[in-house]
Design a protein around this nucleic acid. Structure first.
Lengths: 189, 189
DNA sequence: GTCTATAATAGGATAGAC
DNA sequence: GTCTATCCTATTATAGAC
């Protein structure tokens, strides 16, 4: 029983990276084998359900990572404006300033979208929930907080798509700046 | 030499429809054969370059369709506000009110993204250009017109992604309403 | 837990008749 | 311009040794 070449955590990271750059359907097991340095049989040891399960596990792992690294700052006792900056900073890092695509979007655009309906839905909801929570903490009225949270996620996802299409990171950076400036404003947007 | 079962225009429509719903990489030639009612060999007659060429041709065709049906209203002599409403209406129809995905986004998320770099880039630019043109016509300052145009496309693309993820059309509809209300406003957003 | 095979299938693509 | 039949390759997936 040889020792693991790579901890599961790291395998999942590689999977996410592959899916984000190539897209889910365009990523073959051979691609994954190369990226991880593992043979196909080893991959089936980790993911008995094959590629389909990789998608599901990777999505679940992403949710945990988001809770830990991105939505985490929200639970602290730091005042809302400071926490919001941390949230934006984490998101900026997460997407490499607009260079990397969103895994959720890649999975939505894949043949697995139907099978991943529920986890996709709740991950998007969690993401919007995180923004809404900070907005509420900053004393924004509930309706406004909810609307702004949805708009923030919409803009982030859209900026990543447009950046991917243009091959530029400008749109993402401008969205981030705009959010930083206006998201918590109590005045009309 | 049998008569064509389906005009090329219609074949391209079916292709677009397949790619939008299943994603490019998840759509097989068999899927396409079924959807069009054509055999694989017939498909290769129309697209000698195979699936790769289908993506390229479909993208080029979309550009034409956008110019004709979506950006078309811009060239008319109708006053800017009226033309903007027409633009939004065309976009709403084009995406079936948020139910259908964006082909551009699907192609960006596919294995063909690299090969389609240029046409993808210029189609996005054309899309933003259309918005910018109406904004300029409504006497918005150039910098503001450009910023709002980018933001409009970002929001539309993002809303479609979020709608796909949630399985709801609410976000898209709210983006459309928001654009209709604020896009041409000369005051600070 | 990883490997080297190998199976089984599906995918993209072509040939040639009509 | 379409069809049937076929080819080739890549892909997912499995078996079994270590």
């Amino acid at each position: 029983m040889p020792a693991p070449l790579m901890p599961r955590e790291q395998v999942l990271q590689k999977l996410i990276s592959e899916f984000r750059t190539r897209g889910y359907d365009a990523t073959s097991l051979s691609n994954i084998a190369t990226a991880t340095g593992l043979g196909k049989s080893s991959l089936y040891h980790h993911f008995p359900g094959g590629k389909e399960q990789m998608a599901a596990d990777v999505l679940e792992h992403l949710r945990q990572a988001l809770r830990l690294n991105v939505f985490g700052p929200l639970r602290s006792v730091t005042p809302a404006p400071r926490r919001f900056d941390q949230l934006l900073q984490a998101i900026d890092t997460f997407y490499s300033g607009g260079k990397d695509a969103c895994l959720l979007e890649r999975l939505c655009a894949s043949g697995q979208a139907a099978a991943l309906r529920r986890p996709l839905r709740s991950t998007f909801n969690e993401m919007m929930g995180a923004f809404e929570e900070v907005a509420l903490d900053a004393k924004l009225p509930v309706a406004l907080a909810r609307a702004r949270a949805e708009d923030a996620v919409v803009r982030i996802e859209g900026a990543l798509v447009v950046c991917a299409g243009l091959g530029e990171i400008g749109p993402f950076q401008r969205v981030m700046r705009s959010l930083k400036r206006d998201f918590l404003r109590s005045a009309p947007h």
